[in-house]
Design a protein around this nucleic acid. Structure first.
Length: 208
DNA sequence: GAGTATCA
DNA sequence: AAAG
């Protein structure tokens, strides 16, 4: 499988999922969002809404509101447990993570054409030995990544539908974000936009 | 468009 | 302190 090392620990797999796999994953995501609808996260303290809408699958989901960032086992609006992680996503984790346990969290981000994600670190997990595996569906995104320090220099790469990226080892905690989408760049989602799935291991050890 | 800074 |  084709992989490009963008930085130490940061592996990029262009076209990791073929079109049939993308269609299958999209179908699974639609089923997940039927059980756990996309909601609008808010910033801690200020309550300012994100432009990206989110939901989760797996035992734990990442949420953000006035009270802070955290992982929790239920949807913040419906109060019900998150649906299961799609099989195709688990397969990607097993193929790409190099980690001996299944993920316990899968954050699903939906970007409308105008949505952005500022430069940030994924550091709300307890297990930093496990990588974060990211899968892109739909419109191309301009992805920015830097270093452990927020002021470290950054580079950009376009992430297209079906691409995978893995943050592991020295790249597990690098800053990253999405500067913009390229509307109309994919016909996978009829309404346009981009879906991103990030698989994580929040708790140390096997899933209980 | 890319990169940095500041607030909170 | 924060993916704003």
């Amino acid at each position: 499988m084709n992989s490009i090392t963008l930085a130490p620990g940061l592996a990029y797999y262009p076209d990791y999922l073929d079109r049939a796999a993308q269609d299958a994953l999209l179908k699974a995501v639609r089923e997940a969002t039927r059980a756990a609808p996309l909601y609008t996260p808010r910033m801690p303290r200020t309550g300012k809404p994100f432009s990206v809408r989110m939901t989760n699958c797996g035992g734990l989901g990442w949420v953000s509101d006035e009270h802070g960032y955290r992982y929790q086992p239920t949807h913040p609006e419906t109060g019900t447990a998150w649906p299961d992680i799609p099989k195709i996503a688990l397969d990607a984790w097993e193929a790409l993570s190099g980690y001996p346990h299944l993920p316990d969290a899968c954050l699903i981000n939906f970007y409308e054409p105008s949505a952005r994600m500022g430069l940030h670190q994924d550091k709300d997990e307890e297990e930093f030995d496990a990588p974060v595996v990211s899968l892109s569906l739909g419109d191309t995104a301009l992805f920015r990544y830097g270093g452990l320090d927020r002021k470290d220099p950054t580079k950009s790469v376009k992430l297209r539908s079906g691409d995978a990226i893995v943050f592991g080892g020295p790249a597990r905690l690098i800053h990253h974000g999405v500067d913009r989408l390229f509307p109309g760049s994919s016909d996978l989602l009829p309404q346009g936009g981009r879906l991103n799935l990030t698989l994580r291991k929040v708790k140390v050890g096997p899933i209980s």
